[in-house]
């Protein structure tokens, strides 16, 4: 009986490589996750509601950048078919176009200032600011009328301050490109220079509108430096998922008013481009400034 030596034991078994299987498993998980969250389940079946665009008044456009050409014309030379038909339809070699001015800087585009376009839209700031100070010489004027004027002026100042803030905010927000330019919301033939605000500014305005706080609730001396921060999480449908007042001001009245404002803001009137988590700082700087 001849004996044939067998090769060494180690190489005999060729067990499958566990690492590869781990990778496979991981891939499977990622795929499953993607399938579940990516909206293949049920979501796509929901029929999209018909969208009507009615341009009656200036309502904040949720995402005025929609339809806007890519902010980087240098990397992707794009023809601008939407813009001024009179201009040559495509001139990709021109690096800087003084006419069509598709600006690489978003702020210029989005700041709600009146564009020179001959559109029927009214100017964004129709504030007829009466700079008239309370006239000290007219003795006949009644105190009440004066109060009224002052009240109105205060409101005016507040509104102005608010508008300014909004503009600044949307500017900064867009500069940071928080709302990507390719979100499919906005005007159907948007050019990116409509009067409007970004989603963030829109949410800000909404919460602010719901925030009711009388300065008479507070110690007047505290108005300048009172502040609280709250974290709000909105789902894409505009629903307030969760909120927390992270750093309360310590003033009961102030914090209560915030809670009321947030409770009232539990459902945005429109959806958002995506889920949004916000850290909102509440303070009274504008009031304090108006007082001064």
């Amino acid at each position: 009986m001849s004996v044939v030596p067998l090769h060494s034991n180690n190489a005999f078994h060729q067990d499958p490589k566990f690492g590869r299987l781990l990778l496979l498993s991981l891939i499977v998980h990622v795929v499953v996750w993607a399938v579940f969250t990516g909206g293949w389940f049920g979501v796509s079946q929901r029929p999209k509601p018909p969208v009507y665009y009615v341009d009656l008044i200036h309502k904040p456009v949720l995402n005025p950048q929609a339809g806007r050409p890519e902010p980087r014309p240098a990397s992707k030379p794009k023809p601008e078919p939407v813009k001024s038909a009179a201009v040559t339809p495509s001139a990709p070699k021109e690096p800087a176009k003084p006419v069509a001015k598709i600006p690489p800087k978003p702020p210029e585009v989005v700041v709600p200032k009146p564009t020179p376009k001959p559109e029927p839209k009214p100017a964004a700031k129709p504030v007829p600011k009466p700079a008239a100070e309370p006239d000290r010489r007219t003795e006949q004027k009644l105190q009440n009328a004066l109060d009224e004027i002052r009240e109105r002026q205060k409101h005016e100042a507040e509104r102005d301050a608010l508008k300014e803030r909004l503009a600044k905010l949307s500017e900064s927000v867009n500069a940071a490109a928080t709302v990507p330019a390719d979100v499919p919301v906005g005007m159907p033939d948007g050019q990116g220079n409509e009067v409007g605000v970004s989603a963030l500014a829109f949410v800000q305005a909404f919460i602010q509108q719901n925030w009711v706080l009388s300065p008479y609730l507070l110690d007047q001396s505290r108005i300048a430096n009172i502040e609280a921060k709250a974290t709000l999480a909105y789902s894409a449908s505009g629903k307030l998922v969760r909120f927390r007042i992270n750093s309360p001001s310590g003033n009961q009245q102030f914090d209560d008013s915030l809670k009321r404002a947030i409770t009232k803001s539990d459902q945005l009137p429109q959806g958002l481009p995506k889920d949004l988590e916000l850290v909102v700082t509440f303070n009274l700087k504008d009031i304090a400034a108006a007082r001064r």
Binding site: A161, V212, V280, T281, F282, L284
Partner: peptide, 18 residues
Amino acid sequence: VRAATEIEISAPGEQSIP
């Protein structure tokens, strides 16, 4: 992804309680 955006609201929308 979580990094939250920050906004500031520096005046209430209404200064008298309805």
